[in-house]
Design a binder for these strands. Structure first.
Length: 226
DNA sequence: CCAGACGTTGTT
DNA sequence: GTCTGG
DNA sequence: CCAGACGTTGTT
DNA sequence: GTCTGG
């Protein structure tokens, strides 16, 4: 599963270069402990009326609130979507054709057992993208919420030792395909939802990473229990 | 036809 | 135990 | 994902 | 909105 991750990129320009963004903010808050229901950055290829496509960074709430939802509470139960059943689930299937996004990350956390969080990186990729879906929801007060979910898949060999699921991490070609708004065939887009084969590494971090308030670099450093 | 759900993970 | 909040 | 609450009444 | 269950 993927229930906590980091977006602690060195600069907005770094992120722009890694993901070939057309637009990006001047400042980017570094996040070391992102939790469900919080706002995360997500990448979408936005099509404009004149046919132009611009790759933009949007702020979305993590935990999908479908447009038909009666309230936002459903979002905390929709933080992940299983790749294997994406096309069967009413909440997700209609999003696969046209509401795909990539959630950039530089690491994620998994709890091997309670109070024992591990931080996981890709050895050769300082930034990578999770496959995601997003939707808009109109709140009764008129606000529009944009929210997203992270797709999960079976673990690769490395992750199998840690957890039963892992987030779908896209390679750079898969990012291009996943974001391409002209590709709408479900068999084509779901073909990229496979466990990454990139080398990974994991290390223990302080148990206090469990507390969402501990969102600073200190808590995300390697932890040596004594 | 209408009503009600629409989700994942881990644990027992 | 179960739900909510972050 | 984990942490933390889980309740009511009346008064300010 | 769309699917499932009754």
């Amino acid at each position: 599963m993927c229930g906590r991750f980091t977006q602690s990129f060195p600069s907005p320009e770094f992120l722009a270069q890694q993901f070939r963004l057309d637009d990006w903010p001047r400042e980017l808050m570094q996040r070391y402990n992102l939790a469900p229901t919080q706002h995360v950055f997500a990448i979408v290829d936005r099509e404009f009326l004149d046919g132009r496509v611009r790759r933009q960074l949007l702020f979305m709430k993590w935990g999908l609130v479908p447009f038909w939802a009666k309230g936002p509470a459903i979002g905390s139960m929709m933080i992940n979507a299983r790749a294997e059943t994406l096309l069967e689930k009413p909440a997700f299937k209609r999003l696969v054709a046209r509401q795909r996004c990539v959630i950039p990350a530089d690491s994620f956390y998994e709890w091997q057992r309670p109070k024992e969080p591990l931080r996981i990186h890709l050895d050769e990729r300082p930034a990578f993208g999770f496959a995601g879906l997003y939707d808009h929801w109109h709140a009764p007060n008129g606000d529009t919420w944009t929210s997203c979910t992270i797709i999960t898949c079976a673990p690769n060999d490395f992750m199998a030792a840690i957890h039963r699921r892992m987030p779908v991490i896209l390679d750079s070609a898969a990012v291009e395909l996943w974001l391409d708004p002209t590709i709408t065939e479900s068999e084509v887009v779901t073909a990229v939802l496979r466990p990454t084969t990139d080398p990974m590494r994991a290390y223990r971090v302080h148990p206090e990473v469990g507390n969402v308030r501990n969102d600073t670099i200190e808590w995300s450093m390697e932890y040596h229990p004594s």
